[in-house]
Each structure stands twice: as C-alpha cells, then as structure tokens.
Simulated scan of single mutants.
Amino acid sequence: MSPLEFIRDLTNPDLGFLWKALLIAVMSSVICGVVGCYVVLRGMAFIGDAVAHAVFPGLAVAFVIGGNLIIGGIAAGVVTAVLVAVFSQNRRLKEDSVIGVFFVAAFALGIVIISRAPGYAGSLQDFLFGSITGIPDEDLYIVAGTGLAILVALFALHKELVTISLDRETARAMGIPVFWLDLALYVLVTLAVVISVQTIGNILVLALLITPAATARLLTDRLPVMMMLSPAIGGIAALVGLYISWSWDYPTGGTIVLVLTVFFLLAWCFAPRQGLIAQRRLATVAVRDAEPHAA
C-alpha cells in the first residue's frame, strides 16, 4: 500500500477506527517519549516494565466488572506506586528490589482475577499485546486529558526531577522533597504506561518509554534537545509502524516497537558524536595524532 492510499483510508468514514488508532498511537508515543527521558536519565528502565505489571490487576477488575480499562489501570498503578515509594524509604532494600516484589505481586493478582472471567484468554491476549483497532471514543478523551496532565506536571517539576536524578543526596541536603518527587515520578510513569496499554500491550510498553529516549540520548548531550527529540521519534515511529501494520497486516504493537528499534540502531551507528562510526573515526584521528609524538 502506498502512503497516498494509507492517507485515503485515514479519511474514509467507514474506517474511522483507523484514525482513532493513529491518534492513540501517536499520543501514547509522544507522552511516553517525554516521560522516558526522566526514566533514562535516572537509570530506572526496569520501572517501565514493572509498572506494566502493576496496572494489570486494575485492567483485570475493570474487564470483569465491565468498567473502563484505562481508569482501572490507573487506580491499580497509582496504589502500587504509592506502596513502592513508601517501602523504598527503608535503605536496607534497594529501590529495584521493592519494585520487583510489589509489581510482580500485582501482576500475579491480575492473573488470578481475570482467570475468574469466562472467555478471559482472548482478553488476556489483548492486554498483553494491545488492541488498537477496538478503541472506544471516550478513551481518546481520557488519553488526551491524561497526557496533557502528565506534560503539565512534568513541566512544573522538571528542575526538581532532574536534580534528584543526578544527585539524590545533594537534593535531599538542599531540602528538596525527594520522597514526594519519587512518588510523583512513579505515578506519572504509571499514567503514561496505562494510556499506552491499548496501543502496544503490557509486554511491549517498555519500548515506548525507553527506546525513543535512548535514541535521543545518542543524538544529543543536551537535555532540552533530548526532550524534544524523544517524543518526536516516538510519534514518527507510531505513524510509520501503523502504516506498515495496516499495509501488510502485521501486529501493530510489535511493528511500532520494531520501527523504534531500527531508529535506535541507526542512531547507534550514525549519530554525529556518539555513533559507532563517529567514535571509530575519532579513535583513528587520535591514533594518527599520537604517532608523531611517539616517533
């Protein structure tokens, strides 16, 4: 399918779900791209995967009672995030250990809950791998509103979040409320994950958080530039991935992740300063410059 044919399908009233799928995919990718910058900066990639597990019991309860999946996921994720933030204050246990305990327990609880619903196997597959073509109209508004709230919160807390990411002890000595900022970041990551579940599923959602930000990190040393590049990379990957998925009948979530991975590999090889080729060129120049001195 050519890009023009894809655009024609987007404007076809009989294929309204395709336009909604594109909006959800791009909004989720952009929001996760921004949040992911803080996750990558802080070196807490594990939390994205863990949060995806944490929201599962809320999704399961919402499915069983016929409620909204996004609201159910947000409720479960926020509760788990609060528990992790509280228990992480005990310095005998590292943050990743507490995350592992609570988020995996939450996922197990979700499996138990959803197993009680008839015909749960198909729904479980949708939770794990995404179901972007059956998104109701109300979810568009929920994702847009939640995404806007996330961006506003990150803008308001940007300086403090960067400070605790670079040096927690110094931030604590400066009187910055580290605990509350930790809790805020956990909650914001949770919200970003929940609004992305229908696009890409629980299993693959980590890619939306980490890969665009990691790709942007290879392309620039400046945080403001990184925070603009990351959502742009995520949004473009969502558009390209949906186009490929629709054209060749591939799974949407997996296709978006593979496109993101291709972008990452291109940056790894060809980034102007941090790419593999640039690093080898600099190493060659350094060796060449050192030879006359050695002689």
Rank of each mutant, 00 (worst) to 15 (best):
L128K: 09
A149N: 05
D249E: 10
V285Q: 11
D49C: 04
F63Q: 11
V40S: 04
S28V: 00
M226H: 07
C37I: 06
T255N: 06
L188P: 15
V30F: 15
R273M: 13
S196L: 05
L183M: 11
S165M: 04
S165N: 09
P212M: 00
Q274N: 10
L223T: 10
T146Q: 08
I7G: 02
I135Y: 12
G235F: 13
S123Q: 15
L204S: 00
A52K: 06
R168I: 11
N12R: 09
L265D: 12
A267Q: 02
V178M: 10
P251L: 09
R42E: 02
S123E: 14
I113A: 03
G36P: 12
G275K: 00
F46M: 14
L185Q: 09
A25F: 10
V34Y: 09
I113F: 09
A76S: 11
G16T: 11
D96N: 14
G33R: 01
V240E: 03
R42G: 12
K159R: 14
V225L: 06
A149S: 08
G110E: 07
F103K: 00
G254I: 11
V26D: 01
R288Q: 05
L229S: 04
L69N: 15
G253I: 05
I70D: 13
A295R: 02
L124W: 12
G201D: 05
R288P: 05
V55N: 09
S29P: 03
G66Q: 02
